[in-house]
Structure formats: C-alpha cells, structure tokens
Design a protein around this nucleic acid. Sequence first.
DNA 1: CGCGACTTTGACAGATGTCAAGGCTTGTGG
DNA 2: CCACAAGCCTTGACATCTGTCAAAGTCGCG
Lengths: 254, 254
Amino acid sequence: MSLWNLSPLQTFVEKLALRSSLNNEEKQAVLDLPGKIYQIQANRDFGRLGARVGHACLVIDGLVARFGQNQDGDRQITALHVSGDMIDLHSIVAPEAISPLQALTVTTVLFVPHAALRDVAQRYPAIAEAFWRECVLDAAVLAKWIVNIGRRNARARTAHLFCEIASRYDAVNGGGPISFSFAATQTQLGEILALTSVHVNRTLKSLRDDNVLDVRQRRVTIIDWDRARQIADFDPAYLHIGKSAHEASQARAA
Amino acid sequence: MSLWNLSPLQTFVEKLALRSSLNNEEKQAVLDLPGKIYQIQANRDFGRLGARVGHACLVIDGLVARFGQNQDGDRQITALHVSGDMIDLHSIVAPEAISPLQALTVTTVLFVPHAALRDVAQRYPAIAEAFWRECVLDAAVLAKWIVNIGRRNARARTAHLFCEIASRYDAVNGGGPISFSFAATQTQLGEILALTSVHVNRTLKSLRDDNVLDVRQRRVTIIDWDRARQIADFDPAYLHIGKSAHEASQARAA
DNA sequence: CGCGACTTTGACAGATGTCAAGGCTTGTGG
DNA sequence: CCACAAGCCTTGACATCTGTCAAAGTCGCG
C-alpha cells in the first residue's frame, strides 16, 4: 500500500514492458507522467457516458469495471481492470467516453491528464505504439469475452473468468492451489458473466462441490488449476502475457 | 464492381476521414499503399490462428467474419467486416493473429503488406493515430456486442444486429423501409448472435410477422426503423459515424 | 448486538436448445 | 429449359438451462 506512493506508474511501466520494448529514456518518460491520486468508494460510478474525459485513469489498487446497460437498466460488465491497468488509454484517441466505469471495491486511482499522455506519445513514437498495442490487446480480451458469454454454459463461463483473472494477476504458479483477492459480489459476477446472481450462486456451489474452485469472502481459490482450465476451455494466449516482449520487439524491428 | 479497380483504397480513406482528419498528403499516402487483390470463396476460413500474418486485409466487396471457437468447435463470430473495412489493422502492432477469419460470402480483398502500413504510420503520425483510432472504435463495437449478447433476448439482439449493420452501411435515411444486401445464412446469424439457427429462424419469423423487418434471400429489409430501433434498444453513438470528424480533429488539436 | 447487504436454497416459470421431418431455393448438368 | 441434388429454411414436440420469486441464513460493520 505504501510502496505505491513511490511511483504508482512503476507497475504500469512494467506491464507495458511485458509487451512492448521501451528503452530507459522512454520508460522514464512514462514514469514522469503527472497525475493526481484519488480514492473511489465501492460501487461508485464514474466517467459518465458521453462526457468528454480529460484524463486517463490508472488503477493503483482495487477493482474497476467498465459496463454497458440495456434500456431496463440491467448492467453488463464488459471489462475488468486491476492494479497497474491504465483504463481509458483509448480515450487519448477517442475522448468521447463510450461507456461508464464502476469501482467494484474501494479503489485508488491516478488520474493522468490527456495532454500529458498525448505529449509523451508524440515525443516518443515507441510509447505511442506501446499504448496502441495495449488498446489492441484489450480488444482481444473483449473478443474472448464474447466467445465466453456466447458459447459456454454457466460453469465453463465462470471457470473461464477465474482462470483469466488468475493469469492476469500472474498468480498461476506450478502445482498447488491458487489464491487471490477478488472482491466482486455474486450480483456483480452475474453482471460480468451475463447470469443472474442466483445462478452464479448455484454455479459457484457446483464448482466448489467438485473441488475445482472456491469463492468466498472476497477471495478466490482455484483448488485444481488443471481441472478448472479444462472445464473453462481456457487458453491464456489471448492475454499476451509472458514471452511476448520478445515478439513485440521483433514486430517493432520488422 | 469495376469502380473498385480504380482504387480499392478510396473507400478506406473515406472511412478514415469520417473519424480522423487527414490532410491531402496523408490521404494520398494511404491511397498509395501497395497491395494485391484476391477473391475468397464463400465459407472459406483464412488467417490461421497463431500464425504470424504479414499483411492486413481490406475488404473490397463481400462480408468477412472474425470468430472464436469453444472446445466443441462451436463458432462465435466476434466481429463483422463489410466493404471499406480494413481488417487486421491491429496486427500492425500485434502481429500474432489472435483469431481466424471466415468469408461469409464470395469476398474480394486487398492484402496490404505490414511493412508498407508500418512505414506509412511512421512517416505520418496522423495516420498512425487514425489507425489507432480505428482499432479503438472496433473495440467499442466489441463491447457493445457483449452487452447485446449478455443482456438482450433473442428478439432485441437480432434487431440490434440489423440496426447496427444498416447504420454501418449508411443505409438509414429518413422514413421509408431500409433495404440492404446481407448474405449470412441463419446458421451464421446464430454464430453472430449466440443463438441456434432454429431459434434465429423463429425470431426472424416473429419480427417479420410483426412487420418490423424481413430477412430473406440474402437481403434484409427493415420495414419499420423506429420500431426496430426501439425493440433493439439501439443507440448508434458507439459506431462513431457522422459528426465525429469534427470531434476527432478537436481531439487532435488538443 | 442489530441492521443491512450478501449468500444460499427451493419451487416454479420461461427462454432457448435439440431433434427430426418436410418444404423451398439455388445452382448445375444434361 | 428441365430435373436433380445440396444446402438452406421452416415447423413441431420435447428437453434443458437459466431466470424469477420468495424466504431464510450468514456475515460484517457501526
């Protein structure tokens, strides 16, 4: 918690560097970005639809969801953002906010002015490209979610979500159980998975009874990773984590 | 059909110019992009998963779908591309193909080498930004599809798709019925809408019986646009068509 | 220690999927 | 120009998954 104060941007740079090759000057330029830290209460909506947003938003700690709604007001969460994710990078290039955000838990964010992001992107083409790449990879996750919601039943869909989150938290180690903090309520899980909270509850129970995974009290434990992965039909390639910086640098050289 | 031979890239430039402001030199640079024209048979898959793709692909005529699959091989179409759409712009920056493509009808495409696209983007930052913006707006459509599949029933979902396609074809005029060519089979519609072909058929019948829209023989007629729009809960803002070039240029100036 | 939010469960309802059969289009070859 | 085959569309009967409603149990915070 206190480490973040040193530089909230450090995690962001590290994430960027996973997928794009940046030299020290470029990394430093990102670290030097200005911003203001805010704390957002749980269940607070922010980033109003249609409003011109003047800043992007880096999640320092907590959990943020992007969502859409139908005319009845039913929410569908379209993306989830965890520590180190820069939300709204796309808004550098399309400042009209397309969908609102909601903090699912108490969340600490850093608001970074667009002007500064545009400036750094203009001065360093490699940074612009890295930002662009992040947008593209976010889109790959969106596409995967469409497949997940469209073509998998509640069990597989739910398992897939937790496999994804575990991978994004970089929590997948070798054997043993995987455990991470994840504070969405079952109602919110329903908004992510396009299920009702009741059915989420039943699905979670079924996965728990089968000793695949356990979700309780703001914490997820994946008891049997291989089984979860198999049920979920999960292939982490779309997340482009690990061994990707190499490919990214190749792309850049090409 | 023969007009395209003059410059398949013309429509692409016009689409770019709708959302990004490019000066004449920049437009010409895009028009000068090299490429080879190919014809792809209906139902042909191309752009294999995981393969490094060496070119992007502009749809000159026809209909192309990007899709994912679950382990049973059930397909879920995640995006649709019509004439003038440059598919794979994202692959400039992430050349690892993330999902395969399928031509839904006989389709004419122009393959444009990555090297040329990267080159033009490097020489003209405004073009790089325009490409980036296209990627971002594609992502907005993906997010909308998640909401559509996740939070609307078969009727609304189907109506929403046709409202979107009509808008993207720029076929929405004033009053009267809207008619456009759209050659997906009901099975393919099911792959788009996350429904079975049987249920697509029933839904189409219901919309036809209510005089909302008529889909037959590779052609869609939206009989009552207002009603369709209302059933679909359709708001075209996410497509960023029209009156957006202004905002884009503002963003650029900012 | 009590209130409010979240979780759990059961009974029942509704939407969509599955299976199967028959009719219709379309394109092709004689 | 006709006839046929293949693929596509249409429909009915039934199955299954997920949603709805309602009530009780649990947890956490003031």
